[in-house]
Simulated assay, not measured.
Amino acid sequence: MNAQQAIASAQAAAPAHGVPANYRPAAAELRIVELVEGAPLRDELPPPGPVYDRSAWVVRLALDILWVELTIDDQTGELLRIRRSRGAAQAIEQEAADG
């Protein structure tokens, strides 16, 4: 997978996880990420458990100072983790409440 493919995967996964369509790609970086089996996908600390490393693209979608990072597995294209800035989390939750 390359950066453009990772961005495309992140953008495809974003709407199903509440990321507004007006968030645009700001960065894509290949990293080694630590994951815990069975950890929640979104914005929570992982539970205790064995940690494993995965080569993954961390794709940042942003709107001004608000951002969401989607971690995409380099080999499979699977969405591994979502992290949101505090402001983005509040804005997305408010938008969902407003309907």
Rank of each mutant, 00 (worst) to 15 (best):
1 M>N: 10
1 M>D: 09
2 N>E: 06
4 Q>T: 08
5 Q>G: 11
6 A>C: 05
6 A>V: 07
6 A>Q: 01
7 I>Y: 02
8 A>W: 09
8 A>G: 03
11 Q>L: 14
11 Q>N: 07
11 Q>G: 06
11 Q>F: 12
12 A>E: 03
13 A>T: 03
13 A>E: 04
13 A>K: 07
14 A>H: 05
14 A>D: 03
15 P>K: 02
15 P>A: 07
15 P>D: 04
15 P>V: 05
16 A>K: 11
19 V>G: 01
20 P>I: 05
20 P>F: 02
21 A>R: 05
21 A>D: 10
22 N>V: 02
22 N>F: 02
22 N>L: 00
24 R>P: 03
25 P>Q: 08
26 A>S: 12
26 A>P: 05
26 A>C: 08
27 A>V: 10
27 A>C: 06
27 A>T: 08
28 A>D: 00
29 E>V: 08
30 L>A: 04
30 L>S: 10
30 L>N: 05
32 I>E: 15
32 I>S: 15
33 V>A: 02
36 V>C: 00
38 G>Y: 04
39 A>T: 04
41 L>E: 02
42 R>A: 15
44 E>G: 12
45 L>F: 14
45 L>I: 14
47 P>S: 06
47 P>C: 04
48 P>V: 01
48 P>A: 10
49 G>P: 05
50 P>C: 03
50 P>Y: 01
51 V>I: 15
53 D>Q: 15
54 R>C: 13
54 R>W: 10
57 W>M: 07
57 W>K: 05
58 V>W: 09
59 V>P: 03
60 R>G: 04
60 R>T: 13
60 R>M: 05
62 A>H: 08
62 A>Q: 09
64 D>K: 12
66 L>K: 09
66 L>W: 04
66 L>T: 06
67 W>C: 04
67 W>P: 07
69 E>S: 14
69 E>K: 11
70 L>F: 06
71 T>L: 06
72 I>V: 09
72 I>P: 01
73 D>M: 08
74 D>G: 12
74 D>A: 14
75 Q>K: 13
75 Q>L: 14
76 T>Q: 05
77 G>H: 03
78 E>F: 11
79 L>F: 00
79 L>H: 01
80 L>M: 02
80 L>G: 05
81 R>A: 15
82 I>Q: 01
82 I>K: 00
83 R>L: 12
83 R>Y: 10
85 S>C: 04
86 R>Y: 15
87 G>P: 00
87 G>Y: 01
87 G>I: 04
89 A>Q: 10
89 A>N: 08
92 I>A: 11
92 I>M: 05
93 E>C: 07
93 E>N: 14
94 Q>R: 14
94 Q>P: 13
95 E>R: 07
95 E>P: 11
95 E>M: 10
96 A>M: 12
96 A>D: 14
96 A>P: 13
96 A>G: 15
98 D>C: 09
98 D>M: 13
99 G>R: 09
99 G>A: 00
99 G>N: 10
99 G>P: 07
